[in-house]
Structure formats: C-alpha cells, structure tokens
Amino acid sequence: MIGVELGLMLRRRRVWLCWVLLCALPALVAVLLATTRLAPAPGQGPAFLSAVVSNGQLFPAAALALVLPVFLPITVAVVAGDAVAGEASSGMLRYLLVRPVGRLRLLVAKLVSTAAFVLIAVALVTLTSYVVGVAAFGFGPGASLGGAGGITSLSGAVITPGELAVRTAAVVGYLALCMLALGAIGLFFSTLTDSPLAAALGVLAVVVTSASLLPLDAAAALRFYLPTTHWLAWIDLYRVPILWTAVRQGAEVQVSYVLVAFGAAWANFATKDVTS
C-alpha cells in the first residue's frame, strides 16, 4: 500500500511541478544576487542571505529560509490536502475502500507519502541551492587559504565540510518534520471534505493564523504551541557549539502535531460515510 502511494505520488505532475518551483525560486534569487551583488544589509532580509555573496556554501541555508515561510507550506498544503479529498473528489475513494484495505492502513500510506514528499522537497532545495550557490558565489574566502569547503558559523568559528554536511542533514530532517506536521494537519482536513482545495486552504489558514498570533504579546501563552513558532529553530544548528534547546523543543511540538492531527484524521475517517 505504501509503495503504491509513493509510486502514485512520484507519477503526479503537480508534485514534480511543486519541487521544480521550490528549487527555482532560490535559483532565481541566486542569479539576481550574483548579477547585481545587491545583498540585503546584515540583519535584514531572510537569514543568511546577506552572507551568501561571500560564500556560496551558505546558500542552501539562505534558500531554505527563503522558501520556508510561504512556498514550502503552500506545496505541502496542496499535496496533503489532496491526499484523501482528491480520491473522494475523483470518485475513487469508495472503490479504493471496497478493496481489502483498512482505512487506518490507507491513512498511514498517505502520511508516509506526504512525509516522502516533504523530505524530497527540502532535500532537493538544499542540494540544488548548494550547486547554484557555489556556482554563483564560489567556495568563500577559505578557498584561497586552503580551507575550501568550510563556512563561517554564526558564532564565528569555522564549520568544516564534514560538519557542514552533518548539520545540513539535520536541518533537512528538522524542516521535513516541521512540514510533516503541516502535512498531517492537511491529511486531517482532507478527511473532513471532498474538496482538495478546501483542505489546502484550511492548512494555509492554520499557517496564517499561527504567523499572525506569533508577534502578539497577548498570545504569549499560546506561542510555544503554535506550529510556526519553531520553524526557524534550525538556524541554531549553524552556531558553535550547536544550541539544541530550540531544536529539541521544536521537534517535540512538531511530533505532537503529527500525532494529534493523524489521530484526528483516523478518528474522523475510520467511521466516515464514504459516498464519493
């Protein structure tokens, strides 16, 4: 079942379009920065963007910061919202459930498929932006000193190529988890409606609501539990030594969202009258 769902996802053109667009936006920014050399001032613009012109290896981090607030959530909303509602809207869901397939098993397969989508999306953005970043901005000042491959951490110490690979892998995993939490919410919404668009808009409504509450002092008590609060915690992985506090808290919150949203999807879908 999981293999079938993964195959189905990989055959969908909209999935590939999402990945291409996610990779294209950072590439466009890299081209613009490389041609104009007009990087944002330090402390302004997305994280790391002001520093990439001096070291292209920082560009994956800048690219992730670029796509994280809007583009990545939109693609996750589209794919996750389509998971069950898409089958219902095309009239396939009742035929799917006629087969000896448990509803829980179907939901698990859909969640795994969503997880694969977000993991591939974040990994593709990271890999393509590394290639584009190095091509556009080079390996940084360390190259001339025989230190090619290293980057300057936020704390000033140099991160070696090996450390950079490990830290970047951790960033990919963390962001994939953050997006999987959204995907699980999308899966839940997808069981509530037969309209993939409505489910996707529901996910985006969650993102917008969370982002709107985040800066409000009046919502301080809720801040820790908002899904978007911890999205930027991965930046702490580029400090020396790594600060795990926010990453750990963020991972706990995102896993909780996955569990609760998937549980809600299961609670709703298990006894739902499927007529589509």
Binding site: A41, P42, D236, R239
Partner: peptide, 23 residues
C-alpha cells in the same frame, strides 16, 4: 542570538571582544 545571526561578547583577562556575524 538572533534569527539572522549572532552578536557575541567575550571577556578575557580584562579585554573585551565583540563578534558580529552580520558585520
């Protein structure tokens, strides 16, 4: 610690150093 960088103050034997990632 800021979302876009880090500003570190060191004090070592009477001398202060400030590292600014943005700058």
């Amino acid at each position: 610690l800021t979302p876009a960088g880090e500003r570190d103050t060191y004090r070592l034997d009477g001398v202060e150093y400030v590292w600014d990632f943005g700058g």
